[in-house]
Design a protein around this nucleic acid. Structure first.
Length: 216
DNA sequence: CTCCCGATAT
DNA sequence: ATATCAGGAG
């Protein structure tokens, strides 16, 4: 397992590699971020942005998503994948927003998870990015990177990963570290071909050292 | 655990 | 052909 000093070394190096890591889901308000994040499940953010570019011109408010048929909304987001569930969730979520929150996205993680299609990860993204509330959303990249490094156990749940990250990272760094973990996982410590030979974290990485010893 | 699911990279 | 992608619900 990584020591505290080793983890802070990782945070420093990721800051060096990706100093401008940020949310790559294009949005102009909390509602757009909520929809974009819901759409991003099992889909690249590049594809999400391609769809929302036209989607957000057609649908501005929750009412707009309820004004069309489910089939029409499905067609508008079909290229995203999982489009039947996502279309249904967007309409149900819009209805709940109007009836219980006057159409405004609540700045509260636990309230957000009561919305259909919104789990802990999506809720953490929204409160963190849209409302500057400290949170660490554990997506596929964050989970993979923290487990490869050895900060977490391979058998840990995403909630356990989140708790470990919150415990071992100063709260003022949560948002930045969260995005740097994603950039590091997306562009360097990739799922299929991680670039271990050129990795500045190799010296402290459990999985990296194992992979490199196999090559030699 | 399974299902949902199209686009892209390997 | 197969793996993966800013997951969530039953």
């Amino acid at each position: 397992m990584l020591t505290k000093a080793q983890w802070h070394y990782c945070l420093d190096e990721m800051e060096r590699m990706f100093p401008d890591a940020h949310c790559e889901l294009v949005h102009e308000n909390p509602f757009e971020l909520l929809v974009a994040t819901l759409l991003s499940a099992q889909c690249t953010d590049v594809l999400v942005n391609k769809v929302t570019k036209t989607l957000f011109q057609k649908y501005k408010k929750p009412e707009d998503y309820l004004a069309v048929s489910i089939e029409e909304l499905q067609t508008d987001i079909r290229s995203i994948g999982l489009y039947r569930n996502k279309a249904k969730n967007i309409q149900a979520l819009s209805k709940q927003l109007i009836e219980l929150y006057d159409g405004e996205v609540p700045a509260n993680r636990d309230l957000l998870t009561t919305f259909p299609g919104v789990g802990r990860k999506t809720a953490n993204v929204v409160v963190s990015v849209a409302f500057d509330i400290p949170a660490i959303a554990v997506d596929t990249h964050v989970e993979r990177v923290t487990k490869r490094l050895g900060l977490c156990r391979w058998k840990d749940s995403v909630l356990q990963v989140e708790e470990t990250l919150m415990k071992k990272t100063p709260i003022e760094l949560w948002s930045k570290a969260h995005h740097q973990l994603i950039f590091f996982g997306r562009y360097h410590c990739k799922a299929q071909n991680p670039n271990c030979p050129e990795c500045p974290l190799l010296a402290v990485c459990r999985e990296g050292k194992k992979r490199m010893s196999k090559i030699v």
